[in-house]
């Protein structure tokens, strides 16, 4: 597992571009008609998404459009009330309980989550662990990677996100930008198939945003599959392979960045883009 990442790291460009042509259609994550209600209010009204290897899909939309909720449904931090979810060809089964729909098998959900990493708006690095401990935690205890390999990998990841000197610091001793880059390293340590980013720069001071975006951009270069929710429109236009515009719990428009930003067809999207 670690070897794969190292290979990607060394020969990232060639491997990424090659694999994109040869396994173009390898579907890593597929969500079909996801529905979600908060009480009696529907927030997601049947949203579908397919992420193939190398895709970078950005969800945009005004606040309350459901984009963060949808993203959280993709690794079941929110339980969808309707729809199907498939990760790496494995369907997640659901059952009906007294408290609504729930996953059939917790083990299966845990496996799925170990393949789909999440980067949060508020970083959520574990406060009682050093940066280094944060990064090795899940590889050791969830994936069963040996300690020496996990630490070795963690050091190389910290190097990569520019935090090699901070490995022994606690999250409270780091700036927001450093915490977020650390959180990205923590996600990468799982060597996930898909990475989810939930407004990764929204809680940051403007001068710290650049470093985090630079790290995410470097992930594109190694061919990572990512799904982002962001308000950074310029960045979305630069890195995405596909943009989905959500409005009131529905997909209003989907397209390539040049279509969405250059020739938006719906009036709502035009209006949304003009307010930016």
């Amino acid at each position: 597992m670690i070897k794969i990442i190292e290979t990607l790291g060394v020969a990232n460009k060639s491997l990424a571009s090659e694999s994109r042509d040869s396994v173009e259609s390898e579907t890593l994550l597929k969500a079909t008609k996801i529905e979600k209600n908060f009480g009696n209010t529907p927030v997601l009204k049947g949203i579908s998404l397919t992420a193939n290897r190398g895709d970078i899909i950005t969800l945009i939309g005004s606040s309350g459009s459901g984009k963060s909720t949808f993203l959280r449904c993709l690794n079941l931090l929110e339980q969808p009330d309707g729809g199907e979810l498939e990760v790496h060809g494995q369907k997640i089964g659901f059952k009906n309980t007294r408290h609504g729909r729930a996953p059939e098998n917790d083990r299966h959900v845990q496996w799925m989550r170990s393949r789909v990493a999440m980067v949060f708006q508020n970083f959520n690095l574990w406060a009682h662990m050093t940066l280094l401990e944060n990064i090795v935690e899940a590889p050791i205890h969830v994936l069963g990677v040996s300690k020496s390999k996990a630490y070795e990998h963690a050091h190389s990841l910290l190097e990569r996100v520019g935090l090699a000197e901070r490995s022994e610091h606690y999250p409270s001793q780091l700036s927001g930008g450093q915490q977020q880059r650390g959180a990205i390293a923590r996600a990468l340590a799982m060597n996930p198939d898909v990475m989810l980013f939930d407004e990764p720069t929204s809680a940051l001071d403007p001068e710290l945003v650049g470093d985090v975006l630079r790290v995410i951009r470097s992930l594109k270069e190694e061919g990572r599959t990512m799904i982002l929710v962001t308000h950074e429109m310029q960045f979305a236009e630069d890195v995405s392979t596909k943009i989905m515009y959500l409005n009131q719990g529905k997909v209003e428009e989907v397209g390539t960045p040049s279509q969405i930003f250059g020739h938006p067809s719906s009036a709502r999207l035009r209006q949304f883009l003009s307010t930016r």
Binding site: D106, R113, F120, W126, H128, V142
Partner: peptide, 30 residues
């Protein structure tokens, strides 16, 4: 214990008991 701390653990694929042992309990103890 902040909800985000537990969510981050769940998002890594940790089981309930692992989350309690490694994240919830030590954070709670402080």
């Amino acid at each position: 214990v902040e909800k985000g701390q537990v969510e981050a653990a769940a998002a890594c694929g940790m089981s309930r008991s692992l989350i309690f042992r490694r994240v919830k309990f030590p954070l709670m103890m402080s």
